[in-house]
Design a protein around this nucleic acid. Structure first.
Length: 800
DNA sequence: ATACATACC
DNA sequence: TACTGGTATGTAT
């Protein structure tokens, strides 16, 4: 009886893992039960099935644990969590940025569409790209049968016996991808490709310019059919493939359309609205490639991604940039649609009766108690309809790997030679990108589909076949020995390298910080380009997450970029300052990133004290100091060093909004750990925060942003104040016109903060253990940085 | 740092 | 017959 019960539960739960995923476009209204039955019948008893079952049970245990935890939560805890969550929400809310226009473009059934285009026979047949073992994608016809990506071909065949399976032609897809990317670049030169067929674009700048474009610049011709390589089918194809016009287009210029028959001369004029611009882009894609794309338009990437799916295929959807529209949109959005919430997260959330984003918002307090900080922060952003409002430039790669699946391989000898082959392939790939890595990971999957990884990090970097194989071989050998006298029965082997070091020098980091703080040194120790690269690298080691960049700092980036040109214009002056000013003798001094004065020491501890002082002393702020000429030069010089590197870097990730957010949440959300230890670590500095002038009664802290004293010694409260203050200042500053000389304080403060943050960043990189804490605010920055570095963030998503 | 899990295309 | 491959990141130890 018990057995029975357990078995039936097993089966039932198993379904959720194994069953058809019909949340993709083109899969609505299918006979799920029938499809699932076929899938089950095809899978049952296989090793794969058994393994999936095992994993499913693991997830179930995880859920049970979570439910147990949930049961132990008291009303009081929940209430307290609710307060925290609401506070965090209000801070997040303040950072909402609806000013950007983000577009997510996604080709429709990409590989399948390419194959259909090139083989008209396939046009009205259900087809898929891949193999009997695995499909990459299927056309919409096949989707009606439940055939979809990531399904093995042999099961797909059972669902749809007439299915035609075409093998992949990656070179072709890459070529098409290059074509569409050319078009993307016209709308956003910094667009971010997510795969061959998908990209995020920031349309904001394009739209601004577009307003003043003449019609001629917005006019695009239909593909000239007489030149088409496939003349006889092209007429058919055109009607077939080109539902270019959409009812939703606001000012559709139907009247200008050429007749269907007339080749060559037909053209269309597109308007200046977002919809028109995106429609134009999709039109051009189709004319150029004879393939269709779908797009989503929204104020951030997370939403844009969801929107692009909404009217797929060959459609687009715009989510207006108002809070109301966003919240309405989110309301009934299934959590599974959100990038970053997959099968498992969905199941866990479902167990808590959460299936839509509005549920997510309603249950935040609970979620904050049951999930990790990163997770619930992500949930929180999702529930508020927040996401990344800028397109992060592509980060340097963090790993490279190659793996192969094969029929059972049990002989050690063969395993070693396969391992070597993999290393050869990998070394070749590494060479193409000039990479050297310190970590080698071996991946093994046995015939029961159990996956194992074994890694080793070396004190040096490797790049050649022999070097990599030497490590991989050892790892493999250990595994074989562990299993002996049984052989390892493998079905997959893979080798991955990670922890890359930059090929040129890879100097000790300590040197770089000195270099950075010694303006003259840039010139003397190498070209500024080298410096740039060094810093860039260090930067990358810190760039935890390319995904979620908070709105505020994103703004900085754009701002800094705007400033960059003017900074560059000062290059002459800078060069002058650093050579004639103090270039040669600066090896004994460091430049304070707060006051920009030289500090005559090379002792970082002393220097650190100076900065402590500076941060707490308003008169040291450059905008208030009596900026003599020489100081201005220093200032510029400093900027010169930073212009290329720091400014970009700032924008990239160490977003200030994120910092305040992180620190804010960190300090409150993990009272046991974060806040407590922070406070302990900081107690001395809190005291030092107290203004010398005001050594009065109650505890007082000075806000580094508004400079006003805050009558509290509660770091959480103070922290919150600083966050609010910062947000307000930044928003105000950015909301207003260009920073006229009328309004320097805010700007200056921001800059100071930027440098301060950067400074902290360096320090956290170099693990300077002595006096790492400069002041409460810096601590927040630093903590936030550390948090970032350790936990990364995602997404926003997609990604955040 | 390592291992394993989740997610995305 | 037959359930991928590549990359990044989150979670746990």
């Amino acid at each position: 009886m018990m057995d029975n019960g357990a078995t039936s539960t097993k089966e039932e739960r198993f379904l959720s893992r194994m069953a058809l995923n019909d949340n993709k476009a083109g899969m609505e209204g299918l006979d799920r039960d029938k499809i699932n039955k076929i899938i089950m019948e095809s899978s049952k008893g296989s090793k794969f099935y058994e393994n999936e079952l095992k994993r499913e049970q693991q997830v179930n245990r995880r859920i049970e644990k979570m439910m147990l935890q949930k049961a132990q939560i008291t009303e009081q805890q929940l209430k307290k969590a609710q307060v925290q969550v609401e506070k965090t929400a209000s801070v997040l809310e303040m950072s909402r940025d609806l000013s950007r226009v983000i577009v997510h473009v996604d080709m429709d059934a990409f590989y399948a569409a390419v194959e259909m285009r090139d083989c008209p026979e396939l046009k009205d047949k259900p087809m898929a790209v891949g193999s009997m073992s695995m499909l990459s994608t299927s056309n919409y016809h096949a989707r009606k049968y439940g055939v979809r990506a990531a399904m093995p071909g042999f099961i797909a065949k059972k669902l749809c016996p007439n299915l035609v399976i075409v093998s992949t032609n990656f070179d072709k897809y890459r070529a098409v991808s290059d074509e569409i990317r050319e078009i993307f670049a016209d709308y956003d030169p910094h667009f971010q490709p997510m795969s061959l067929d998908e990209a995020y674009l920031d349309f904001t700048d394009h739209l601004e310019q577009r307003q003043s474009w003449p019609e001629s610049s917005r006019t695009h011709r239909y593909r000239s059919r007489s030149i088409t390589e496939l003349p006889q089918e092209s007429a058919l194809e055109e009607t077939d493939l080109s539902p270019v016009l959409f009812e939703d287009s606001p000012n559709s210029s139907l009247g200008l359309l050429g007749s269907e028959g007339a080749a060559g001369d037909a053209f269309e004029v597109f308007g200046t609205s977002v919809e028109e611009a995106v429609r134009e882009m999709r039109f051009r894609i189709e004319q150029k490639t004879r393939l269709t794309a779908s797009a989503g338009i929204a104020p951030n990437t997370m939403l844009a991604k969801v929107c692009s799916d909404k009217n797929k295929p060959n459609g687009q959807y715009r989510l207006p940039s108002t809070r109301e529209a966003v919240m309405d949109f989110i309301e009934n959005l299934p959590v599974r649609k959100v990038c970053g919430i997959g099968k498992v997260s969905e199941k866990m959330l479902n167990a808590l009766s959460i299936s839509t984003c509005s549920h997510l918002g309603q249950q935040m307090a609970l979620l904050s108690l049951l999930f990790s900080e990163t997770s619930w922060h992500h949930f929180m952003e999702v529930s508020l309809g927040l996401g990344s409002t800028f397109i992060p430039r592509h980060e340097e790669r963090k790993s490279m790997s190659t793996e192969r699946t094969f029929r059972e391989l049990s002989k050690a000898e063969e395993q070693f030679s396969l391992c070597r082959e993999l290393c050869e392939d990998l070394a070749e790939d590494m060479k193409k990108e000039d990479l050297k890595a310190k970590t080698v990971t071996l991946k093994l999957k046995n015939v029961n589909f159990e996956v194992k990884t074994r890694a080793l990090t070396l004190p040096y970097a490797v790049a050649t076949v022999d070097e990599i194989f030497a490590v991989a071989k050892d790892l493999l050998k250990t595994e074989i020995e562990n299993e002996s006298p049984q052989p390892l029965r493998l079905r997959l082997m893979g080798v991955r390298v990670s922890a890359f070091v930059s090929l040129d020098d890879k100097k000790p980091l300590q040197k770089s910080i000195i270099g950075f703080l010694q303006p003259g040194k840039t010139e003397s120790s190498g070209s500024s380009k080298d410096m740039h690269q060094n810093l860039e690298k260090e930067n990358h080691s810190l760039q935890a997450s390319p995904l979620v960049c908070p709105p505020l700092m994103q703004k900085y980036q754009r701002k800094e970029e705007a400033v960059k040109s003017s900074t560059k214009a000062n290059d002459n002056k800078n060069a002058h300052a650093s050579t004639s000013g103090c270039g040669g003798t600066s090896s004994e001094t460091l430049t304070c990133p707060v006051c920009f004065r030289r500090v005559e020491t090379t002792d970082l501890n002393i220097f650190n004290s100076h900065i402590d002082h500076c941060l707490n002393d308003p008169t040291r702020k450059p905008n208030q100091s009596t900026a003599s000429d020489s100081e201005s030069d220093l200032d510029l010089e400093n900027d010169h060093q930073e212009s290329e590197v720091v400014h970009r870097r700032r924008g990239e990730c160490e977003a200030e909004g994120e910092m305040s957010k992180n620190s804010e949440e960190l300090s409150r959300d993990s009272p046991h750990e974060g806040q407590q230890s922070l406070k302990n670590r900081d107690s001395k500095d809190v005291t030092s925060q107290q203004p010398q002038s005001c050594n009065s009664k109650g505890p007082v802290l000075i806000c580094p942003v508004c400079q006003l004293t805050q009558e509290t010694d509660d770091l959480t409260v103070f922290n919150h104040h600083v966050d609010l203050c910062l947000n307000q200042q930044v928003l105000h500053e950015l909301g207003g016109q260009t920073s006229s000389s009328r309004n320097p304080p805010a700007v200056k403060n921001i800059n100071i903060r930027g440098k301060c943050v950067y400074y902290m960043k360096l320090f956290s990189t170099f693990s300077l253990n002595t006096n790492p804490i400069l002041c409460t605010f810096s601590l927040c920055c630093m903590t936030a940085l550390e948090t970032r570095c350790e936990h990364n963030v995602g997404i926003l998503s997609p990604f955040k």
